[in-house]
């Protein structure tokens, strides 16, 4: 499955990208929300999005809002962030996130969250 990994941190992108590749996924990296829109336009077969919250240019919440308005993606979006306050989580869910991964996390959590949203 093709996974769009949206995170401005190179180290996070490297670690999570490696985890995803080990699981057999193809990874497309974007460094913020604006870059993610471009990557979506270039890749019509994205199966799931992993989306950081705090990023330059366009942050994760703004990307969710953009997607709700413009419907550029129909696949599940999982927030993957250090923002772990309930009100933030609720806000992300209200704006179209399907699941939420709080950093730091382990590979088994990544696997089960992706499984959950992909299998519906």
């Amino acid at each position: 499955m093709k996974v769009l990994l949206v995170d401005d941190s190179n180290s996070i992108a490297m670690v999570v990208g490696q985890m995803l590749q080990d699981l057999g996924h193809e990874v497309v990296r974007a460094k913020d929300g604006k870059d993610a829109i471009a990557k979506v336009n270039e890749n019509s077969d994205i199966g799931v999005v992993l989306l950081d919250w705090n990023m330059p240019e366009m942050d994760g919440l703004e990307f969710l809002e953009y997607n709700q308005k413009n419907k550029i993606l129909s696949c599940p979006i999982i927030m993957m962030t250090t923002e772990n306050k309930p009100e933030k989580i609720v806000k992300a869910l209200q704006n179209g996130a399907s699941e939420y991964i709080m950093k730091p996390f382990t590979q088994d959590i990544l696997v089960s969250k992706i499984d959950t949203v992909v299998k519906g």
């Binding site: 306050k85 309930p86 869910l93 699941e99 939420y100 959590i109």
Partner: peptide, 20 residues
């Protein structure tokens, strides 16, 4: 812990039945 609640618990139920 953050890790405990991410194992098997859908986030919708986390924010409904747990407080930070």
């Amino acid at each position: 812990s953050n890790l405990d609640v991410q194992r098997g618990l859908p986030v919708q139920l986390l924010v409904k039945y747990f407080e930070s």
